[in-house]
């Protein structure tokens, strides 16, 4: 399955499933649905609900 990217609507940060967010303890390859709901945007703090899937 192809990796997807999710973009923060507030600040444009991109969560790339392939890269994960190792600084927040989310290993590379973590699917968006497996990112915990309590996770927030590392750049601006927006919640997971404020992300939108990006067209590739």
């Amino acid at each position: 399955m192809q990796y997807k990217k999710w973009r923060c609507l507030i600040c444009d940060y991109v969560y790339d499933e392939e890269l994960g967010a190792p600084d927040d303890g989310i290993p590379p390859g973590t699917r968006w649905e497996d990112v915990p709901d309590s996770w927030t945007c590392p750049d601006c703090g927006a919640s997971k609900d404020d992300f939108q899937m990006e067209e590739i």
């Binding site: 507030i10 600040c11 444009d12 750049d43 601006c44």
Partner: peptide
């Protein structure tokens, strides 16, 4: 623009 995508970051 600047506040959300600049300042907050």
């Amino acid at each position: 623009i600047e506040h959300n995508r600049g300042h907050h970051v």
